[in-house]
Design a protein around this nucleic acid. Sequence first.
DNA 1: TAAATAGTGTCTCTCAGACACTATGTC
DNA 2: GACATAGTGTCTGAGAGACACTATTTA
Lengths: 221, 221
Amino acid sequence: MGYQDSAGKALTDYPRPSVAVDVAVLTVPPEQHSPEQELFVLLVRRAGKHQHDAWQLPGTFLHPGEILADACHRALREKVGIEGSEPVQLHVLDDPHRDDRGWVLSVAHLDVVAWRRLERVDTTEVRLAPIAEVRGLAFDHDRIVALAVERLRAEYQETPDPRGLLEEPFTLLDLQRLHEAVVGHELPKDSFRRGMEPRLRATGETQAGVVGKPARLFVRE
Amino acid sequence: MGYQDSAGKALTDYPRPSVAVDVAVLTVPPEQHSPEQELFVLLVRRAGKHQHDAWQLPGTFLHPGEILADACHRALREKVGIEGSEPVQLHVLDDPHRDDRGWVLSVAHLDVVAWRRLERVDTTEVRLAPIAEVRGLAFDHDRIVALAVERLRAEYQETPDPRGLLEEPFTLLDLQRLHEAVVGHELPKDSFRRGMEPRLRATGETQAGVVGKPARLFVRE
DNA sequence: TAAATAGTGTCTCTCAGACACTATGTC
DNA sequence: GACATAGTGTCTGAGAGACACTATTTA
């Protein structure tokens, strides 16, 4: 890149770090699955380690000529069998001693995948854990989870289900439960409706066969 | 890090990218320097290129064992003579072809430095340019400037001069002019005062020798 | 006293939250 | 009709912007 140090020597000959991506895949279970909806994160068993409870986020090294997003896609495809997600960068973790096997920078990512696409991955090698119970992950992955949750909460402040976690069509109550799971606390019913309804499109249909007044159904605009 | 591909081969042997940092140093001139205050960015002449108007952001390659913030500090010390700034990460630029001399990832950073500490650096090799006039920088540095401006504007929405661009003590009008320069548009006088004053500490002193009612002086809390 | 700038009182508008009320379905 | 849930009308308080008014200095 033409950077030179004070002696004028080109610096591209210096030793290079390994560059990895790590992805915090967040999701929310549907209401019928658990009455208390909350955020879950996808964990994989730590490679090469067979001790109990050694978990980490899915990740991989960046391959030559590859962009970071594609490395994320590859990691999720190979380890979890997920396709077509949309990772976003969070932060570069750069402590030179964060990995005791060498100099590894990790670019932390957030990804969001609907529960339905993750149900089948719950095996001995892969599991979904409520974020409140995630402690002691390998490396600095606890911090990545915290960054991912913070970012997702910011995204869900503004827009109705911007990441498409909910299956369409949905009721306003479905949407509210989802947003409550993401932001981690209850929301006032009427303010939520007034804020969200103008940003949705009503299908014209209503729920059928439910007790009480049937709710109108909506899709994302 | 123990990542393995599907064949089980450890990946740390793959070719590694060079990792660089590039820093958008933003500042605002004091009022007496230019009536129209606006954001300026620090540019350095593109190394090894002698064509006219070949400018880029200061940057450097990451050295072994170094964290990104220290690489930023080193770049600014060696090229511009600045010490003690506080870079924050913005984004990783990862287009494999962004640098035609090799595979170079760049971690873009924002830094903010008071004008007073930058005045002396305006030489043939280094200059300060208003952000509105910055176009056609080397590599993807135009985009880094845009990201840096966006981040700085967000920081200045909340807090009075969080980056310490203003010399203390200052008047509320000084502070307002600064914030207007950062966010890029005028702000209502009375709302600005009401929002900011509770977050400042009055020194008890006032301006002396000015026409009109002398303004009270404040420092950051 | 005139001019200039600092600082405030107050009105209005909007928006979020609280709360109670109405609407419309099942049992 | 009893019950349950969806959806709304309205009040209140907080905060932003508009605007005019008061306050305090120099010339």
